[in-house]
Design a protein around this nucleic acid. Structure first.
Lengths: 170, 170
DNA sequence: CTATAATTCGAACGTTCGTTCGAATACAGT
DNA sequence: ACTGTATTCGAACGAACGTTCGAATTATAG
């Protein structure tokens, strides 16, 4: 809170006039971020019907926001479990909605092309690839969101699709 | 430190008799973990020459350790940047070595099969898939390390290999 | 049994943290 | 100008944290 006070130019007590507690401020950051990401995703998905294209949009939307707001992303990744019951469940609901959208897209893809793979592990692997980026991306060295999204999209989609008969029946 | 004192049964001051500071203790945890993972990996890689098999071993080795020591993994992921210069660089060296091993395996695979993809992004995506697991894996619901390693290995290797002419030349 | 070293701990120190309080200041409508 | 409301802040409080100190206890060796 003292860091935020210094960075914003408002006194410490002033911050508490607007945000009743540190936890509530963290909650608002998390809520705002996830809500924004989901809203933008829905806008971009509207009108696109090809599941592969939809997954590519999902990845691009996610990475664009992550790379444009690296500080917020560090907060979200680090303080993911820092909220108490009331706040935690509201944020968890938005996250679950986001997760479900991705599951939906992959299940569509699976159905359309007769693929076989564990949707849960595929989705969570994809989230891992995308979220881990906050630990290594350096804007002075690495490509922009669009480029990385294409590369991760290639990697993930080929991984999930190739062969049209996955090896996961075991 | 007070949590560790309570959990270990030794007094707070007693802890400081063995570990001169909290930072040094964190350093020792990080160093021990990464050293152990690298040592086991090298043992398992010894004698295997097929690059695809080697990558599968890399993934299995990583996930087995991660899922067997979830608490240590949470520490490593959360406090990755918490060490000051002296300690940080020694840990960074081990991590770099580990990263380089993975780069080496993928470059071998790439050479052997004439593939085209960005090794850096592939490796970091793989690390993302594997490391993110600490946020979602539930031993009562999810499969064991071997199963998940096979599934992630399928996903990643097909993603990297399929077609033998990647689309990344652009 | 004694003397030296190793181990353990209760109690405290100084700092940082989240938060609150009361007073000061800016602003609004009358 | 006056009154009430909204905003801002310096100063402090209590709790938690990393760390240290000196004394007490236990182990080791001659």
């Amino acid at each position: 809170m003292r860091d935020l006070s210094r960075a914003s130019g408002m006194s410490l007590a002033g911050l508490y006039y607007y945000f009743e507690s540190k936890e509530r401020l963290l909650f608002l950051i998390q809520k705002h971020t996830f809500t924004t990401v989901v809203r933008r995703l829905k806008e971009r998905l509207d009108g696109v019907s090809d599941p592969e294209q939809q997954v590519r949009i999902f990845i691009l939307n996610h990475l664009e926001y992550f790379l444009a707001n690296p500080a917020a992303m560090k907060v979200l990744s680090h303080e993911a479990e820092a909220l108490k019951n009331g706040f935690a469940s509201e944020v968890a609901a938005i996250k679950r909605q986001y997760y479900r959208i991705c599951v939906g897209l992959l299940d569509e893809l699976k159905g359309e092309r007769g693929l076989q793979f564990s949707t849960r592990i595929a989705v969570l692997s994809l989230f891992g690839m995308m979220n881990w980026i906050y630990t290594w991306h350096n804007p002075r060295v690495d490509a922009d969101a669009e480029h990385i999204a294409r590369e991760m999209g290639d990697l993930f989609l080929r991984g999930v699709m190739s062969g049209s008969r996955g090896r996961n029946g075991r």
